[in-house]
């Protein structure tokens, strides 16, 4: 079976607000079912890469394609559709403060208009899988850092989005939780979901079907 690229970044140049060059001639391709671990120290442009992928920043030149759509040229409606295919975990993907844990987890299904019965079934599965039954009715402000990360994982899994963007997966987690979530990432990889994991820790556990990249001098090497 032919596998098409989920992410295709071609010859991207990006400058910061202060006119500093963040990316120059950035090329990157992630095929369906494959994953990428992107290592870069703080300030190397990991957040900018996420911004590019989510369409929050537009490159100075070059193109960013997700699921075959050039997101720089996509309408807002198309961009929303693309974002619905992405599950996000980590720093940038905070929980919605006014919604409970259950509502946060089920939100991707609400946006896609999934039936209430299906939503409830999948929600129960996620709450059980990530041991969040007791916290189901709590607001995010009541949760610990670990619990918040678990909710993010559950939210990124409930709609089985084909692409996961994970920003600093180990940040603030104890080794036991991190090991448990790593298992989740391995399972997600085996199930055919693509992942892009951005980390500043060089020793991040290897994920099956993945390639390792380093952000260096505005390029992925």
């Amino acid at each position: 079976m032919d596998k098409s690229p989920i992410i295709e970044i071609n010859n991207v140049y990006l400058k910061s607000d202060r006119r500093n060059q963040i990316f120059k001639n950035l090329d990157f391709k992630l095929m369906q079912g494959r994953s990428a671990v992107v290592y870069g120290p703080p300030g190397s442009g990991k957040s900018s890469l996420i911004n590019l992928l989510l369409g929050l920043q537009k490159p100075s030149s070059g193109s960013v394609e997700l699921f075959g759509e050039n997101i720089g040229r996509s309408s807002k409606m198309k961009l929303n559709k693309i974002r619905r295919k992405i599950g996000g975990i980590g720093g940038m993907f905070e929980l919605i403060p006014s919604l409970t844990v259950s509502e946060n987890i089920a939100y991707p299904l609400v946006i896609t208009g999934e039936r209430s019965k299906v939503r409830k079934e999948r929600l129960l599965k996620m709450l059980t899988e990530f041991s969040l039954i007791k916290q189901a009715a709590d607001l995010p402000e009541k949760l610990t850092r670990v619990e918040r990360t678990l909710v993010q994982f559950a939210r990124a899994s409930i709609a089985n989005q084909p692409l996961l963007i994970i920003d600093e997966p180990s940040a603030g987690l104890d080794s036991k939780t991190f090991s448990r979530l790593s298992e989740f990432l391995v399972r997600a990889s085996f199930s055919g979901r693509s992942m892009i994991i951005l980390t500043s820790e060089p020793g991040t556990k290897k994920i099956p079907n993945s390639d390792f990249y380093q952000l260096k001098g505005g390029e992925l090497v």
Partner: peptide, 18 residues
């Protein structure tokens, strides 16, 4: 008051009318 939530909702793909 719900600005942070809106940013997250948009990142998850919520449309303007939604």
């Amino acid at each position: 008051a719900r600005a942070v939530g809106f940013t997250q909702m948009r990142l998850l793909g919520a449309g303007r009318m939604f």
